[in-house]
Amino acid sequence: MKIISCIKQVPASSNVDVDPDTGVLIRDGNNVKMNPYDLYSLEASYAIQAKAKDAKTHAITMGPPSASEVLKEALFMGTDDASLISDRAFAGADVLATAYTLSQMIRYIGGYDVIVCGKQTTDGDTAQVGPEIAEFLGIPHVPYVKDIISVEHDALIVKSTYDDYEEIVKIKTPCLITIDKGGFVPRLPSYKRKMSFKNNKIPMVSLKDLPDQNPDHYGLNGSPTQVEEIFPPSNDMDTVTINQTPEKTADTLIDILKERRYV
């Protein structure tokens, strides 16, 4: 069985501001990390591996060459194989183009049984990439998986969590699942693995390796959505400010509540 995990590098902090005059994004630091949900999904891939016979795990990411850091982290945690997909032609990809590129990468690797994605990222935050990859590959998907109940020879049985209900679903392989937090506790990278992978170079795949090499299907050109503008969240509001002793504040609060007939 082959399990492919899609992981993404995201800014370490989502504390960004927009300069109100220039409209420029101000990030606090240029630090990056693995998308937290992808840590859960890597752990889920190991859970499937443990339940299957002779399973191999393979992590992939689409991003600039520096994004291979998250692949190394996956290797250190326990993933068997890793590859980066990177090409200037992928720049400006929206969800559709990102998912298409990843689906092409998965076809390029081939022979897969289960694709594992995080539920969402902490930057783009759309939660759309997983289901779109599944559609491009023509395979079923189950979102928000919190438990792998069993691994059969041609299917998985998983538990998936919605707002106020859960579903137990049998999904035929090949398939894709997205992982919610709460079900899997990510392990720490192992020192031993770190040492043994120290000199490993992560292989890089680019457009010319993919089955579909038409640049119109990738990056900005393959992206139906376009970000027209980025701006800070706004607000305009009349605020009554109250700064009194605690006793008086309590009285004032009672008055406000009385006025609104709550008291």
Binding site: D125, Q128, E132, H141
Partner: peptide, 23 residues
């Protein structure tokens, strides 16, 4: 943009090869 919609809409978007703006 319910949990169900967030899983369903991207599937539809990829089927129709169109854009989808989330939330």
């Amino acid at each position: 943009g319910t949990p169900l919609g967030r899983s369903f809409a991207p599937r539809v978007a990829a089927r129709l090869k169109t854009g989808l703006t989330a939330d």
